[in-house]
Design a protein around this nucleic acid. Structure first.
Lengths: 103, 103
DNA sequence: GTTTTATATTATATTTTTATGATATCATGT
DNA sequence: ACATGATATCATAAAAATATAATATAAAAC
């Protein structure tokens, strides 16, 4: 019983990591390929500080990881579960343009 | 471009609906079968007010729906995307008991 | 129609999340 | 060593989420 609650805590931490419009935009970028922080800022329009904090949160939940090349950090998606969830979200919220009419 | 942000907002609202340990416990119950509010309270140990608020949030995000039978409301999962995400979470956080050693 | 059972709503205090501004660090080029 | 570019950390104010207590509603039993 205690174990289920532990799992619920970890799973919900993970979901909270994903559950922000700005972090989803970041992850959309990273689904394509790894990106530097500067590239992510350009692509999303977020302030530098805010980007850094979002990336920090994503790292904390092990949603992303990064490598360093000279002074540039390249972030990428770390976790296969993230890709699966992004896929579910894409089908549910991006592809579903009134599919009812096709039925 | 505006469309992507709209989608990110809706998707993140949906994820926020899921991203709570208590709501995940509720949903774990509902994966098995529909349940009345009283049954959910017994199964999770949540306070009645708190349960009602969580269910309200889950309804708001169209994660669950319900039917009435006399004075009892039976809630159930409303959305196939929810089941898919629960499946991902289950595999990631409940089945993964150091599977590395089996590799 | 009054009571009882099941559930929702409202109010509020607490905690958490987020954005912003200022400053710091770290690697590199000069 | 110093300036610069890339990124992180710290402080803080504003907004959102949560739990709890109190009250309300709605359906059925009596």
């Amino acid at each position: 019983m205690k174990e289920i609650e532990d799992n619920a805590d970890r799973a919900s931490g993970f979901l909270k990591g994903l559950a922000s419009p700005h972090r989803l935009l970041i992850l959309c970028q990273l689904v394509e390929s790894e990106k530097s922080v500067t590239e992510l800022i350009a692509a999303t329009g977020l302030a530098q500080t805010s980007m850094s904090q979002h990336l920090s949160k994503l790292k904390e939940e092990e949603i992303v990881t990064f490598r360093r090349d000279h002074r540039t950090l390249y972030y990428r998606i770390n976790n296969n579960a993230v890709l699966k969830i992004m896929d579910v979200l894409y089908k549910e919220f991006c592809q579903k343009l009134d599919k009812e009419s096709t039925k």
